[in-house]
């Protein structure tokens, strides 16, 4: 696909529709190779406490900078709007970007977003000049509120983070896509297999963000390639116009003129 299919998100024009997380890889070298193989132009990062003098964070940040990719810091682990806002502000200073993947977690078992805190934090951060990428559910009303709050992109889940379940609510995701045809929608979380990533792209979603399925694969670099191919295939299929399923068979080979068919009367 050429440049005409670039994805525009805030101030960025992207040719890759594969966003990749940077956590849980076997080694920094494998992480770097997975990012290169994926062709990802955006990777997610985070911030955490660290013992003074440890320098682990410093070396990770150097590795990412050397790859030349754009970073999307997250507010993972935050449970209130206040925590998320402070984390976003720290991330902006630390990573030098106003992009923020906004997560406000409301429930431990599913890591489901607290959508009330999410909207509250999204408004505060948007007003403060952030480009907010909200991690949300497929709820249409919440999506509307997030756009009202200043978000210009939405990141609905497919399934709970790290579950690898694929699309949990097909109807909900379809409705979201149909309801917001002009808003960039990036499916974030719950994708476990390349076929699932292809499926969300075939639905018309603009991009996919995943981490665990690649990082914890037996061969993360090969899996990054598999997802990359699937995302590209799903996008191409969506743009090509998928056929509508039907209940009954329809012969693909022309029936007219078949041998042993209804012949001519002598």
């Amino acid at each position: 696909m050429g440049k005409s299919d670039d994805l525009v998100v805030y101030d960025a024009r992207l040719s890759s529709r594969f966003l990749l997380g940077t956590a849980r890889y076997p080694s920094p070298a494998i992480l770097a190779e997975a990012i290169r193989t994926a062709g990802a132009e955006i990777v997610t990062v985070s911030l955490r406490r660290e013992a003074g003098g440890s320098r682990a964070g410093e070396s990770f940040w150097r590795l990412i900078r050397e790859l030349g990719v754009r970073v999307l810091p997250n507010t993972a682990g935050c449970r209130t709007a206040k925590e998320a806002v402070a984390t976003a502000q720290m991330a902006r200073e630390l990573f030098g970007t106003s992009w923020i993947k906004l997560e406000v977690i409301g429930e431990e078992d599913t890591l489901q977003p607290d959508v009330f805190g999410l909207v509250e934090a999204a408004r505060i951060l948007s007003d403060d000049g952030f480009c907010v990428f909200p991690y949300t559910t497929e709820d249409l009303v919440v999506a509307e509120r997030l756009l009202d709050a200043g978000c210009r992109v939405l990141m609905p889940w497919a399934a709970p983070i790290g579950s690898g379940r694929g699309i949990n609510n097909l109807f909900g995701l379809r409705a979201l896509r149909a309801h917001f045809p002009d808003t960039p929608l990036i499916v974030d979380a719950g994708l476990g297999a390349p076929s699932q990533a292809a499926a969300v792209m075939e639905l018309g979603f603009d991009a996919a963000l995943l981490n665990t399925a690649v990082a914890r694969a037996g061969d993360p670099v090969a899996m990054a390639r598999a997802f990359s191919l699937a995302i590209e295939a799903g996008r191409a299929a969506y743009l090509s116009g998928l056929m509508e399923p039907r209940d009954m068979a329809a012969p693909s080979t022309p029936v007219l003129g078949r041998a042993f068919g209804d012949g001519f009367e002598a």
Binding site: G21, T22, A23, R24, Y25, L31, T44, V45, S46, L47, R48, R49, E50, G52, S54, A56, G57, E58, F60, W61, I64, P73, N74, A76, A86, M90, L94, F95, I161, G162, N211, T212
Partner: peptide
């Protein structure tokens, strides 16, 4: 007090 550094994230 929170003092944080860059870290891997999803």
């Amino acid at each position: 007090v929170e003092i944080v550094t860059p870290r891997q994230g999803g």
